[in-house]
Design a protein around this nucleic acid. Structure first.
Lengths: 361, 361
DNA sequence: AACATACTTTTTTCAGTGAAGCAAGTTATA
DNA sequence: TATAACTTGCTTCACTGAAAAAAGTATGTT
């Protein structure tokens, strides 16, 4: 990143940003209060507000009660100034959401596609659906940007998909293709990071400087926020805590390594563990001959099946050790646990919390 | 951190910083080149340079060869503008260094104190020696700041020592005491972070945005640099990679946890391993009855003793697994390995590199 | 070799610009 | 009449850009 030099444009940009954010986050608010909160001159605020009003980025929403003088005029951010489209690419589904700037969903759409489709066909499908969604935007407003979440390794800076095992795609310039077509900024990131940004901007992370989001489900991933910014590493692949070594020389992991956290705390491990140990649980109702899905395991556990419960608890134990490492490394005030695996949180959380509490250095 | 509003002071501060840093890092340099490199107006550079010259922060060092026109006047940063004192508190030694702003050491001093001394006595000793060092500063120059490195848990923001096991001190307002006495900024951090900052400012890290320093010795620690800033975590304790769980339910660690990296990759492990396994190495020359120090182990290893070599290699193997986890989490372009353990790098490095290369996801 | 002319490059000067800041004034209310 | 909210007009100051000044080099002529 090149450092910006100080000049009048910089001042302008800074103060406009400050005023917009003050109104967006603390609005409705009066000019006087903005001035006090930001320590900006009152006349400066007046001028900036005037400009933002003509740009329709903000508007006067009405007046508040007087406290002994002229009533303050309340300003509010125009959340419908523009719209954005968010897309999640799943294994055989596209999920679209058209939102305003408050992330209110205006329209939502789920579009299936054939598992294993090639990237060109799916991108074609994405373009068609974006065109369709754009029609729902009011005439005098416009699309401001597109965000895409894909499970895989992403070059965030260039908006390229480097590799996705789930889709079996590699090296696709998603941002370039869509930017050419729609002429708006296009952001691409993996699903965990996208979820982490959501927590940072709209969720529990709003008030935090540093936190880690850990997703627990088919695999284990994490999003890292440091100094209020998502950290992606030098090659875009930070946060792969699923492939931390938890058991030196341990179980083989899909990635090729041995003893990864993900080889112990994941859906696959739970199912494998049940298969390996069903012989020791004569009273278990689990039928090993039918295809065993993770949902069925949850079902069995809910009904008190000890094998299912043990498998979940063991997986949770390893998850706890993984979190312990994360805590020792990042020393964050908060860790957010999420992911499909959390549907069994009644069983998992007590185990995890117990391990973390009793072992933290 | 409160955001600064945009005004003329901000512009001034930014551009003065940019010019100073340009001269400091790329000097000697002419006004014209500064203007080109920073994209700042030539007249602006002239004005700022004039100001910095009267402040004696920079000076004109001479002229460079002409390239067909007027000779450029070269500007250089005045590294002797002021001085700083750096102090490392060891188990029974204080190490002082008086340096100029180029980190050139003007004077260095080693002052022993009684192991187990209380903090007041040692701080008294520190103050006396600082007073002594200040006498070595030229009359017209001054002390600009003090930096202190201690092994332990530090509250960097307040400059307080929270707890040091090595010294058996806790909750000491080091910064407050010295700031009151000398009226200059005082920075306190643990030894690993201090070393990491040295790498960031003067070492291999100068050109890197993200890197991790891993110290391997009596324990394992790490310093984390993200976006050119040292990351300390919300409670000042980030980087404790020594207490990552490497072997679930493994060896007991000094910290109370089980299976920490430090329980496997550390001097203590190496010595314990030798004691536990000497029975299997009949040909080993190691005499288990004498007090076994890590230095002696290195000596034995250098002379080809297989037990010593095996112990070092095994410890290195675990270190490799630890680094693998660090790489998976941070995805940095560079890891810097340092610490006393590296004196045996001929044995350790090949093992570590092999593990990392063959396993990286 | 001495000199004149043309061109280059570096640095300085100075009027102009614009964003913030300040103070006095206006509006609206208790 | 006092007070709070907001507006207007003027001042300030750091950057900008163009022109001028300073200090060279390159080349051709006598």
């Amino acid at each position: 990143m090149r450092l910006r030099i100080g000049n009048k444009d910089l001042i302008k940009d800074i103060n406009r940003s400050l005023v917009i954010n003050e109104i967006r986050l603390n609005g409705p608010i009066s000019r006087t209060d903005i001035s006090k909160n930001l320590n900006l001159g009152l006349s400066t605020v007046t001028n900036i507000v005037e400009e933002l009003k003509t740009q329709k980025l903000i508007f006067e929403i009405g007046e508040a009660d007087s406290t002994g003088g002229r009533k303050p005029i309340l300003l509010e951010f125009n959340y419908n100034y523009g719209y954005t489209i968010g897309i999640k690419i799943e294994e055989n589904n596209l999920i679209f959401a058209l939102t305003n700037l408050n992330a209110d969903i205006i329209r939502r759409k789920k579009v299936p596609f054939k598992r294993g489709s090639n990237s060109n066909d799916v991108l074609e499908l994405i373009i068609k659906n974006i065109e369709d969604l754009i029609k729902a935007i009011p005439m005098d407003r416009s699309l401001l940007g597109i965000g895409i979440a894909i499970s895989g390794l992403i070059d965030q800076k260039r908006g390229r998909l480097i590799y996705s095992g789930m889709l079996n795609w590699s090296d696709i310039d998603i941002s370039g293709i869509l930017k050419d077509r729609f002429n708006v900024p296009v952001y691409v990131d993996n699903d965990v990071n996208a979820y982490t940004l959501a927590e940072l901007w709209y969720g529990q992370g709003r008030t935090l400087s540093n936190f880690i989001v850990v997703t627990y489900g088919s695999g284990i991933g994490s999003g890292i926020v440091i100094n209020k910014r998502l950290y992606c590493g030098d090659f875009g692949g930070a946060g792969e805590i699923g492939h931390m070594v938890l058991v030196a020389d341990g179980r083989k992991c899909e990635c090729g390594q041995k003893g990864c956290l993900e080889a112990y705390a994941s859906e696959n491990f739970i199912i494998d563990y049940i298969k390996e140990n069903i012989q020791f649980f004569k009273e278990s109702k689990i039928n090993i001959d039918e295809e065993l899905s993770i949902e069925k395991v949850y079902e069995y556990a809910k009904n008190g099946d000890m094998l299912a419960i043990n498998a979940l608890k063991l997986s949770a134990k390893y998850l706890g050790y993984g979190l312990l490492s994360v805590i020792n490394i990042f020393n964050p005030s908060t860790i957010i646990l999420a992911g499909e695996g959390m549907v069994a949180k009644d069983i998992i959380l007590p185990v995890v919390i117990d391990i973390v509490k009793n072992n933290f250095f």
